[in-house]
């Protein structure tokens, strides 16, 4: 629980550092990108703290390349 609060604290600190400047200059695209990345970062960190076991994003890569590997294995063996 403490760790989750710390992560949220870090996110808040980063937002406080970066966002005011960007707001002042009215760059809405930057704001959106920063907010998106902060959300992604917060969700990754909180997931890694809370959940005990989680699938890695590289299962995507495994799924994509498994047929390729099998094909090459058949050609070469």
């Amino acid at each position: 629980m403490l760790a989750v609060l710390l992560v949220l604290g870090m996110v808040a600190v980063v937002a406080w550092i970066e966002l005011p400047n960007v707001f002042r200059q009215r760059q809405w695209k930057e704001v959106m990108v920063i907010v998106l990345m902060l959300l992604a970062g917060a969700s990754f960190s909180i997931l890694s703290i809370i959940l005990y076991k989680i699938q890695t994003p590289l299962v995507l890569i495994e799924v994509i390349y498994e047929p390729v590997n099998r094909l090459f294995g058949q050609w070469f063996s």
């Binding site: 980063v14 920063i34 990345m37 970062g41 969700s43 990754f44 997931l47 890694s48 994003p57």
Partner: peptide, 13 residues
């Protein structure tokens, strides 16, 4: 401005 948000993403990932 993206360095810090990316840092948090890395930390989690």
């Amino acid at each position: 401005i993206l360095y810090f948000p990316a840092a948090i993403m890395l930390f989690g990932m």
